[in-house]
């Protein structure tokens, strides 16, 4: 793990059956403390990249090294998933337990924590995200925004080194999005966010990568920035930048 290199991908290619290459010799390095955004057209392979990192998909060719070890098989990825958390696009995929507390405690229990420890971790995580009192709520009866935040809690409860977020702002109203920005900025954790929302990425990440032609590039000259602008319907409550 030289200078905090966590994820190192070299020449990784991937194709879904019956379609052309989605990733074509992609190189990517992710270091401890990085806060990266990831943009790109639909179908450019952003989600695929996240899935390759946690081993839900296996590359056709290329090398993936995580935490200094080459990972290839399912059993290698079991360890990876204990350190790298993935927030799914659809919270309904992530929340499968009947109650919030059980769902948040699921990860810690899998990591071998006792019930008391898992319960405590779950409570603390919920509290840290401002979700006190949600413990006994029924997961499928939560609102869309609540589901997203609880999903985030379920991943954070595993205390990962790296967080991968797949379009976390989809379907969120502005106040929940603002809350998510605050949460991410307050996290003591490296993360990689896939999003189409430039404003959101500008507020939460230090650098943004672009996916195109199956490759990932970071343009050093592009500096994320926020700006205030004027447009019709401006009187309706909405947010573009801080306060």
């Amino acid at each position: 793990m030289d200078n905090g290199l966590i994820i190192h991908m070299q020449g990784v290619s991937f194709a879904y059956p019956g379609r052309g290459l989605v990733l074509d010799g992609l190189d990517f390095s992710f270091h401890q403390g990085n806060r990266l955004g990831l943009m790109g057209a639909n179908g450019s392979g952003k989600t695929t990249l996240l899935r390759l990192i946690v081993g839900l998909l296996k590359p056709l060719s290329g090398r993936i090294e995580i935490l200094g070890r080459t990972v290839k098989e399912e059993k290698d990825f079991v360890r990876v998933r204990e350190r790298i958390g993935l927030l799914f696009q659809d919270a309904d995929d992530q929340l499968f337990s009947p109650t919030v507390l059980e769902d948040v405690a699921f990860g810690p229990l899998n990591l071998g924590k006792t019930r008391e420890e898992a319960r405590a971790v779950a409570r603390n995580t919920l509290q840290a995200l401002g979700l006190e009192g949600f413990e006994d709520r029924i997961t499928h009866k939560l609102s869309g925004g609540e589901k997203r935040l609880v999903s985030l809690a379920t991943v954070l409860a595993m205390q990962p080194d790296v967080l991968l977020l797949d379009e976390p702002t989809t379907g969120l109203d502005e106040s929940t999005e603002t809350r998510l920005v605050e949460i991410l900025n307050g996290l003591d954790c490296s993360y990689l966010v896939v999003s189409h929302d430039m404003d959101f990425l500008a507020k939460t990440t230090d650098n943004i990568g672009y996916m195109s032609d199956g490759k990932l590039s970071f343009d050093e000259e592009v500096v994320p920035h926020t700006h205030i602008h004027v447009h019709p319907h401006g009187r309706y409550t909405h947010e573009h930048s801080e306060k």
Binding site: L56, V78, F96, N110, V155, M158
Partner: peptide
């Protein structure tokens, strides 16, 4: 898959 990501065995 989401369960696997959270260490389900």
């Amino acid at each position: 898959q989401a369960m696997l990501c959270r260490g389900f065995r």
